[in-house]
Design a protein around this nucleic acid. Sequence first.
DNA 1: TCAAAAGTGTTATGAATACACCCATGA
DNA 2: TCATGGGTGTATTCATAACACTTTTGA
Lengths: 247, 247
Amino acid sequence: MEHLPGQVTKVAVTVDLVVLTVRDDALCALVVRRAVEPHRGALALPGGFVLDQEDLEQAAARELAEETGMRPGSVHVEQLATYGAPGRDPRGRVVTVAYLALAPDLPVPAAGSDAAEAQWSPVASLLADNHPGSGIDSDIDRDAGLAFDHAEILRDGIERARAKLEYSPLGAAFCAEEFTVAELRRVYEIVWGERLDPRNFHRKVTKTEAFLEPTGATTTRDGGRPAQLFRRGSAEHLHPPLLRRAP
Amino acid sequence: MEHLPGQVTKVAVTVDLVVLTVRDDALCALVVRRAVEPHRGALALPGGFVLDQEDLEQAAARELAEETGMRPGSVHVEQLATYGAPGRDPRGRVVTVAYLALAPDLPVPAAGSDAAEAQWSPVASLLADNHPGSGIDSDIDRDAGLAFDHAEILRDGIERARAKLEYSPLGAAFCAEEFTVAELRRVYEIVWGERLDPRNFHRKVTKTEAFLEPTGATTTRDGGRPAQLFRRGSAEHLHPPLLRRAP
DNA sequence: TCAAAAGTGTTATGAATACACCCATGA
DNA sequence: TCATGGGTGTATTCATAACACTTTTGA
């Protein structure tokens, strides 16, 4: 069945994951410390090569499980974009398909995985104008920013997540199975870096059909008067959208 | 410099183009008739293999020029998504990075290109439930729907275009360099398949800062009272967005 | 003079904002 | 009883929807 023209360039394909969560009042991404060259010692997005006979989506789910121990069930995963500049990997031509994952703040069940220690890191510090790690000279890349073009990928992932909160119910993907309106609001505030009025937010998300599904239970874990607990509703879109100040 | 692990699967990478325009009151896509197997005789999206040392964006621009003769300047191109299911090309593992292009209704300057005849075709007929062309038995695939998974790619491209009209000034990418408000409105109406109030639409697009740039000239080509001609403005976003009925 | 489309004005409706206020709990 | 956050009510502002009406052309 192999009838591809012989001169066709063949390239290695990887998937890379932008796994975001909200944690300690900051938007955080999952990163691993690279154990091998290139960019050994530098931080990078988790990812790896796509296997033979493996779908891209599958590869992303597998890497997510392998490198972070997360169960696909509790995490939203969607394709982000593909990066294929010829020089992006010094080892040769590598095209990477980036995926965006939104996860609740579970303790990284890292232990047991064979990968380098995965850890949550605030995106602000990951992107704080470190030099894009083109560590050709130095032997080890510690503190040189994200490896490869992963800073660009992370930026794109964050922007996608921010935009999605406007018109989809995916903010809930950052919350536990059951959550209060205030917890969801804090997700919005942290992802957007913007204060929202608690009362108007409450009205918006509770009045929008099928956006939230009440569980009947309440909690006082946030202090004050008991708050209703909700699950994510069946709505796929938030219409009309909940807009940020100005994009 | 080649230090990729030897057992890494290498795959061929193509770019495929969803080139859309508005033409004869219908949303149309550019398709080519395949001259070689697989799916010989079937319609397919224009595209081709990414060359050695070529960026993905470059490859998309090159294919656009080669297969359709369009100049990049007059056409908006953006990455759409990547498709890599193991069985999507019978010749072997091929991952395709799809690009979305929005073009004005130029006569396809096809002549002179070495590719198969490119032609505009209404998307409604391209997607009218033909069997997804898995033409294993038949020798020639004429009238068997789009080749490969191109129907899925086309659907994704159309949905992206529809969504983008809501919050970006890209509707103008379907118009000539200079256009009237009514011409822009017809783009919206045809892409969305929905009637818009001419007067409210006029107000919305002309009052939004930097969305349209008046040229000073007028035209009567649409009949009736002369209409002002505009160019696309410098705005990158349309805020607040111009929403469809219900997504 | 008429049809046709451009463009303006006006009112009504609906949603977001801003904020006063009451409610229910733990400490 | 008091601090804390949950939740409701309401006036105001802003944007869109709906539509009457005037303007400017070609036929």
